[in-house]
């Protein structure tokens, strides 16, 4: 592709816009035309490709980090309240 043509395609949507749409794009919450613009832009713009990849990495890390199980300090009281529920008149 000629440089000029290439510039035009990349300019169809700015990097700033691609960055702002990154999460919606990753979650497939963009219209067909916008999706095409972003896909074409990503194919030619290393900066945006890197950015979108990083957002996906962040999403995956948060998911992995969240594998936390936490128990309330007053679980005993909660269980008691739960048991008492059935014993109410």
């Amino acid at each position: 592709m000629a440089q000029e043509e290439r510039d035009q395609v990349v300019a169809e949507i700015t990097c700033h816009e691609v960055a702002q749409w990154a999460s919606a794009y990753l979650e497939e919450h963009v219209g067909d035309e916008r999706k095409r613009q972003i896909a074409v832009h990503l194919a030619m713009c290393a900066g945006c490709e890197t950015y979108v990849k990083q957002i996906a990495t962040v999403r995956d890390m948060i998911r992995q980090l969240s594998q936390v199980e936490d128990v309330p300090s007053n679980m005993g009281r909660l269980r008691q309240a739960f048991v008492d529920r059935l014993n109410r008149p």
């Binding site: 700015t14 900066g47 945006c48 890197t50 990495t57 890390m61």
Partner: peptide
């Protein structure tokens, strides 16, 4: 205008697992 002036630096082979 609107294009990267300071593009993000690739995290290379940094997978979620490696970072975490």
């Amino acid at each position: 205008v609107g294009h990267w002036a300071l593009p993000p630096q690739p995290w290379d082979d940094q997978t979620p697992e490696k970072i975490l």
